[in-house]
């Protein structure tokens, strides 16, 4: 059991790291009172997912998925290109989200004069 776990950690450490990173992002999102840092937490969370996808695509001894014109395609060992494309798209989506989120934070700061969630709660409770 323990040996199996160690074996998985030794060969699949990338996955474990990704999920640790995901946890850090999520913790930051929940526990941090600063709205900007919350958004950074969201970004970290998403980045962990992107890295997870890249790790999924890895093939032992594989090269970059560019097929030379003359070789026979069956013999080539290369990383799967599809997850890379997915990650590219997801990065674009993530940037759009960050932009909208930051715009909202700018507006909240302009209206309430604070970036901290606890202060924000007090200000809103007073109104």
């Amino acid at each position: 059991m323990i040996e199996g776990a160690i074996d998985i950690l030794a060969t699949r450490y990338a996955y474990a790291l990704m999920f640790v990173l995901m946890g850090i992002g999520m913790y930051m999102m929940i526990a941090n009172e600063n709205l900007v840092k919350k958004l950074i937490g969201v970004n970290l969370f998403q980045t962990a997912i992107f890295l997870f996808f890249v790790a999924v695509a890895y093939v032992e001894g594989g090269k970059a998925p560019i097929v030379p014109a003359d070789s026979s395609p069956g013999e080539l060992a290369m990383a799967s290109p599809l997850p890379h494309v997915i990650v590219l798209t997801a990065i674009v989506v993530g940037i759009a989200l960050t932009a909208v989120g930051l715009a909202l934070i700018v507006r909240i700061y302009a209206e309430y004069g604070t970036l901290r969630e606890d202060t924000l709660r007090e200000v809103r409770a007073d109104e």
């Binding site: 919350k38 958004l39 989200l97 989120g101 934070i105 909240i108 924000l120």
Partner: peptide, 11 residues
């Protein structure tokens, strides 16, 4: 309030 609600939904 709408900006706060939107940010909460966004996260």
């Amino acid at each position: 309030e709408s900006a706060v609600a939107a940010l909460k939904y966004l996260i």
